[in-house]
Amino acid sequence: MSKAERTSAKTAREKIKEQQAAARARDKRKRITTYVTAGAVAVAAVGLGWWYAASSSRSEEAAGDLAPITVQADGAVVMAKQGVTAPVVDIYEDFQCPACKELERVSGQTFKNLAAEGKAKVVYHPITIFSQEPTKSNSVRAGAAARCVADGKQWMAFHELLFQNQPSETEAGFTPDQLKSWGKQAGVSAPDFDQCVTTGKNSDAQLSYSKKVIDAQKINHTPTVKLNGTEIDNSALFSPQELRQAITGAAK
């Protein structure tokens, strides 16, 4: 091979090496672009998931006045616009139950809004589900005191205060003095309210109603919320957006 041929072959090999290096560089850039794009998509997906979770669990704002509220003779409380009979949302709750307190905080306004919009008949069932002390006695005192309130709007205001001031499960609470104070705060106007609370006048009725409801509805935990007789899953119950969809969907 002549010198010229050797020089030509060397130049060809160098060009091939340069082309291969360039190809490797292009492949590397493509991989980096792919990784960055995939990462961006993953971050966007995580962000979207977080946004959806946050938005679906966000409590609703009060949309206006409450629907009419009627305290029933047995202790149940109905909230519904006149003529609205379905769908029926039954809320079985215990004033001493921490999960019930959380349900009221997260989804309580959704129930109120749906009733005010004429999209549901909401029925509250304050029961005593605890059998151990001090939770049982706490629950009975709170439930019995709520039965001392005959006015619907006053009952709802008292209902909210009971959950806001729920005592620890390990200590005695809902004392008569506290209950009477919250009654005043709720605007309870019944002249015999203080005496009713002090004497525990409705304690037996609270326990009797609780047993009747627990047995009839097979309640083994609170809160239990039923839509037209079927229990709503917790995943929807504590997600105001999903809860609204479930209830309005039952009306179609």
Results as ranks from 00 to 15, higher is better:
S8F: 15
E14C: 06
A21Q: 10
T33Q: 14
Y35P: 05
Y35A: 13
V36P: 04
T37W: 12
A40R: 03
A40T: 14
V43S: 11
A44H: 10
A45I: 14
V46T: 11
A54W: 10
E61N: 14
E61T: 15
G64T: 09
L66A: 07
P68E: 03
V71Q: 11
V71S: 09
D74K: 06
D74M: 07
V78N: 07
Q82N: 14
Q82W: 03
G83N: 08
V84Y: 04
D94W: 05
Q96W: 02
C100T: 05
K101H: 09
L103A: 07
L103V: 04
E104V: 11
V106M: 06
S107Y: 07
Q109K: 10
N113V: 04
L114D: 03
E117K: 14
K119R: 14
V123Q: 05
H125D: 09
H125Q: 06
T128M: 00
Q132I: 04
T135S: 12
S137D: 07
S137Q: 10
V140A: 04
R141K: 14
G143L: 06
A145E: 03
A146L: 13
V149L: 05
K153L: 06
E160R: 09
P167F: 01
T170E: 13
E171P: 01
F174P: 07
T175K: 08
D177I: 10
Q178A: 15
K180S: 08
S181E: 14
V188H: 01
S189N: 06
A190L: 05
P191A: 13
F193C: 02
D194P: 02
T198R: 06
D204H: 00
Q206L: 05
K211G: 02
Q217C: 00
I219F: 02
T222D: 07
T224V: 06
N228D: 15
G229H: 03
I232Y: 00
D233L: 07
S235N: 08
A236G: 08
S239K: 10
Q241R: 15
L243Q: 02
L243F: 08
R244W: 05
